[in-house]
Amino acid sequence: MNHLESYLILSALLFSLGLYTVITRKNGVAILMGIELILNAANINFVAFSKFVTHQVEGHLMAIFIIMLAAAEAAVALAIILNLYNDQGNINVDEADALKR
């Protein structure tokens, strides 16, 4: 628990799983969940570097801003997803290609 690498590996794992979720899921909410995983991974990195490398709380501030950003993004994204559902009856992102046609 006192090694920076253990946190970084955890962060890398979370990032990869989040990325996998984002690129393979069809469901819009599931993609949002993947994004949250990625943001969490970034947060872990910020806080871990803040503890082991800089000894300052600027990393914590970045984490707070990221959490806030995640909240704003989730609210707007869910509003968009609800509109998508009203529009096409499901929230599969691969079917949302009305602009292409």
Binding site: M1, Y7, L10, N43, I44, V47, A48, S50, K51, H60, A63, I64, I67
Partner: peptide
Amino acid sequence: AIYIFLNADFI
């Protein structure tokens, strides 16, 4: 919980 291990209680 990981944040707590990183002494980041507020986060």
